[in-house]
Simulated scan of single mutants.
Amino acid sequence: MHLYFQYLLIFFTYINYHVQKSMAFTSCEISALTVNYVNQCPEDSKSWQLAARKMNCEGIEEGCQQGIRADNHQFVFQYHCVINVWGNATLEVCAFNRTILGYCAEFNIVGSVIQDNYYADCTKHDPPCPSVYNSAEAYKYISCYELVQQNRRKTNTISSAKRTCGNLPTTFISILFRFIFGKVFHI
């Protein structure tokens, strides 16, 4: 049993090392400067490629690839259209692609990195996303974009309820005023 825990510790140390290494190599500060909020992301390969051409991520001098190219050829600075961290907006961004593990892909502006949104497990959506996919293929999993629409509807409903309830005391006082003083002054 003791040997089992040693192997487990070695395994998690190995995984942790590679995750941290991947995170360090896929963050690029220039990405935050390319963010463009959009009402809707492309939902098929053709429109994705058209949007990618317009954004021209390959033409951006980002200065982050030297360490990546020397160590790993799998990361590419390219077009993405993903949800934001709060899941209430969609945005286009030039960023390094990432392997996403069963969650919706998001862009973290503070970290300047594409990452998993751990509040949006898309393997449970209908249709589900795979447990592993490339962030540059986020358009294949439109249920993640639909989360943004759902969150916007919730926000609008809450805002509407606040406006209605916010006016309730004023309306009540106005009715009370008319009832009490209307009889005296015949308003």
Rank of each mutant, 00 (worst) to 15 (best):
L3P: 12
Y4A: 15
Y4G: 15
Q6S: 01
Y7F: 10
L9G: 03
I10G: 02
F12K: 00
Y14A: 06
I15Q: 10
H18L: 08
K21M: 14
S22A: 11
A24V: 08
F25C: 09
S27F: 04
C28I: 12
E29L: 04
S31W: 01
V35I: 11
N36R: 15
V38T: 10
N39L: 04
L50A: 14
K54M: 12
K54H: 10
C57E: 08
I60V: 15
E61A: 07
C64S: 13
C64H: 04
R69W: 10
A70S: 13
H73L: 10
F77E: 03
C81P: 04
W86A: 11
N88F: 07
A95V: 05
F96A: 04
N97G: 06
C104L: 00
G111L: 09
S112H: 02
D116V: 02
A120C: 01
T123G: 05
P128N: 12
C129I: 11
C129D: 03
A138F: 03
A138W: 00
K140P: 09
C144T: 11
C144E: 14
C144A: 11
Y145L: 09
L147K: 03
Q150W: 10
T155E: 14
T157D: 14
C165Y: 02
G166C: 07
N167V: 01
N167C: 08
P169I: 00
T170H: 02
I173V: 15
I180L: 13
I180C: 13
K183A: 09
H186Y: 14
